[in-house]
Structures are given as C-alpha cells and as structure tokens.
C-alpha cells in the first residue's frame, strides 16, 4: 500500500503543477515564452497519462505535442513578425554601396522598430520581372506586404500595399512629410471581376 499512496501523492502534485502552468500561460503576455510553457505543459500531461495507466496515449502526446506542435508555433510566430517588401527600384533608394544605408531603408527601419516588425527585403529577379500592371495581382496572390517602385515622370517612389492592412495606413501617416514618397493602396476586388 505504500507504493500506491506515493503514486497518488505524485499525481496530486503533478495536477497542481498543471493548474499553475495553465494559469501562467493565461497570464503571460509574451508569445515566445508561452511556447516553452506549453511544451512543459504537455510533458506534465504525458507523465499524468502514464500515472493513469495509459502508456500508448503518453507516447503520442510526447511525440506530437512536445516536439512538432512547438516547432509549428515557433515558425508561425516568426512569420507573423516579418514584413515582406519587394524592392523593384534599381537606384540607391534602399541599397547604396551594397549595404542597407539608403534613405528609404532608414524610414522603413524606423517604422518596423516602432511596430516590432522584422523587415524582410527581397529583390528576387523572378518576381521583379512581372510588369507594372500585375502588382495588384502579386499583392493578393502572395504574402508580399509592400512593393516599392519608381514613377519616372514625377520622380517619386511609390509604396504599394493592400488597403485592408492597417500597417499601410500607419506607413502613409509616417511618410506624409516626405515629398518624394507616394503611397498607393489597392482596394479589394470582388471575386467576379
């Protein structure tokens, strides 16, 4: 009987620990720390499954909820911080002397630091080869958040983004003092068009 009471005591301790972890996950604000907490939460639940005489369920829980699911959380949280910019300008607006020191990059960097975003700038030749008219299609069909082009007639740089995103409105307010930057917002089109 001594062994049974030991198992019962450890089961109660683990259940109290589970409640503490659940409250910590509810109260915590930083999503990155919650991932570590949720992995330890599923480790504690797996040990409770073993104490409930269910080794099969414990193996499944360990393999899926403390290995694969935290990885998916990490990937999706890192994807939700990045702001993807397609740079179609060929002069030194973003890149000067092969480094990010252009005036446009300084503006975007200040914008990204303010909203805790990570800039992800690309000048991929395959996407840049598409014509000017396809920018709206590109914005809707891919995850590109902002397209930078240059208007040769007025000598202005044009920022293009989706109208639904609140970040493009914030960017418009930030850049209204600069004369050589214009913001274009694509409205949603109906599916039938």
């Amino acid at each position: 009987m001594g062994d049974l009471t030991l198992i019962d005591a450890s089961a109660y301790a683990l259940q109290v620990l589970l409640i503490i972890l659940a409250i910590a996950i509810v109260m915590h604000k930083n999503n990155g720390t919650i991932i570590i907490l949720i992995a330890s939460f599923s480790l504690v639940t797996a040990s409770l499954y073993v104490l409930n005489s269910a080794p099969d369920v414990a193996i499944a829980e360990i393999a899926i909820n403390s290995a694969i699911i935290p990885l998916i959380y990490v990937i999706s949280i890192s994807r939700q911080r990045e702001y993807i910019i397609l740079d179609k300008v060929n002069d030194d607006f973003i890149i000067s002397d092969n480094s990010f020191t252009g005036i446009g990059y300084v503006i975007l960097k200040r914008f990204a630091d303010f909203y805790h975003l990570e800039l992800n700038i690309t000048n991929d030749p395959g996407l840049c080869a598409l014509g000017e008219g396809e920018d709206q299609v590109l914005c809707e069909a891919t995850n590109v958040d902002l397209i930078i082009t240059k208007d040769t007639e007025t000598n202005q740089y044009v920022f293009k983004g989706k109208n639904s995103s609140i970040l493009i409105h914030k960017l418009e307010q930030l850049t209204k003092d600069h004369d050589n930057i214009r913001v274009v917002k694509f409205k949603d089109r109906d599916v039938g068009e």
Binding site: L86, N120, I121, T122, N123, G126, A141
Partner: peptide, 13 residues
C-alpha cells in the same frame, strides 16, 4: 497555396 507558383522569393538577409 499561392497563385503565382514557382516564384518563391530569395531573401537578402
């Protein structure tokens, strides 16, 4: 799925 396929962007950073 993206409509414009086979054009995955390569990032500089």
């Amino acid at each position: 799925k993206h409509d414009i396929e086979e054009k995955n962007a390569k990032f500089m950073i």
